[in-house]
Amino acid sequence: MNPEASVVDNVIDTVSAVFLVVGALMSLAAAVGLLRFPDLLSRMHAATKPQVLGLFLLLAAIGLQMRTWWVWPALLVAWIFQLLTVPVSAHMVGRAGYRTKHLHRELLSSDELDAVVQKAAQSARDDSSRDEADDGGRRD
């Protein structure tokens, strides 16, 4: 093997090693956030988001290690699947958490949804028909 190729190899190896370690650190960040944040909604930030970057780095490291072009589409598909699913599940859990009052009011500096919810609940009580009370298909 000529020395130039091995230098390139070394660089690729180093870059992917850094990617792997940083990607693993993102998982650790998620766990630390899970343990240290005070309420469900802020825990959710820590739990779901660093994974996006973490998985990106890990998949990029795989792509670098394999050194063939045809793995990249497969890796991209795996990442896009995660991009599509993570916000949806985070939103569902967050919405359920907000509706079941799993948040601490004293940790919120402002809550612009609260007034809307109060108003909707008020009109739901006034209005006997359920359909009109729910503003515009929020409950699908």
Partner: peptide, 10 residues
Amino acid sequence: SLIPGSLVVE
């Protein structure tokens, strides 16, 4: 939602 620090609640 994907950018950390903000999350769609409703």
